[in-house]
């Protein structure tokens, strides 16, 4: 089993690496979008290749672990969780990539007041905090910290739900911001989706540590 433990440790490290890269991609895409920094956006686009390569490596190593070591119990839950976490992280990086593409391809600066009224900064800050929670929970196998993201995701849901009405008001005030507002609306949708993916990751961490399945559980 010593070799299996070694392989599991390697996978665990790759998972942590994937988490770090995807968090960095998302943070950079945020800065690129807020400051309309196309150089930084280009960097995110280029880094997508690294994310994809790591995604494939993790997927391959999971397959190898399953085939060669017949994991059971905690090992089995770990391998099932790491595959799903990897998938969710890769999707998060995809969102960072598409937001950066907007920055490079759309030559329009978003009026700063729109960020304010939509609570865009709050949304991004919440996501960053959620990712910090995830990193801590993953590293320390800490279920309590993983659970913190569920409450934070509600903040994102609220901002997303409100965004339609807020933008409607802003467009009525000024017809010239329609394309910027639509772009921002699309990014908010992506951010809300990122929140859901982080929530999925928290559920996977809880499943792997406590064997508790939270997916599709109805709120009491």
């Amino acid at each position: 089993m010593a070799n299996a433990q070694y392989q599991r440790d390697l996978l665990n490290e790759s998972g942590a690496e994937m988490l770090a890269i995807c968090t960095s991609q998302l943070e950079k895409s945020k800065d690129a979008f807020l400051n309309h920094d196309s150089d930084l956006a280009e960097e995110v686009i280029l880094n997508e290749v690294r994310v994809n390569a790591l995604d494939l490596r993790i997927e391959k190593n999971c397959e190898k672990f399953l085939a060669l070591y017949n994991p059971v119990a905690n090992d089995l839950r770990f391998i099932m969780a790491i595959r799903k976490i990897n998938f969710d992280l890769e999707r998060i990086a995809d969102h960072a990539y598409s937001i950066s593409k907007y920055v490079v391809e759309v030559d329009k600066k978003i009026p700063p007041h729109l960020f304010e009224v939509l609570q865009f900064h709050t949304m991004y800050d919440t996501i960053v905090k959620m990712l910090e929670n995830i990193a801590e929970a993953y590293e320390n196998k800490d279920v309590k910290t993983a659970r913190k993201v569920f409450q934070k995701d509600k903040v994102l849901d609220k901002i997303n739900t409100d965004s339609f009405a807020v933008l409607e008001i802003e467009i009525k005030k000024d017809n010239n911001i329609i394309s910027e507002a639509l772009l921002l609306f699309s990014v908010i949708k992506k951010m809300e989706r990122v929140g859901d993916l982080i929530k999925n990751i928290a559920e996977e961490i809880i499943f792997y540590i406590d064997a508790e399945v939270l997916k599709h559980k109805k709120k009491k």
């Binding site: 089993m1 299996a4 994991p71 059971v72 119990a73 905690n74 089995l76 839950r77």
Partner: peptide, 17 residues
């Protein structure tokens, strides 16, 4: 037993540790 054993000893045995 093979997905979520109750006892640590069982887990250690079935996972080869």
């Amino acid at each position: 037993i093979f997905t979520n054993p109750e006892k640590q000893q069982t887990e250690n045995y079935i996972t080869g540790r």
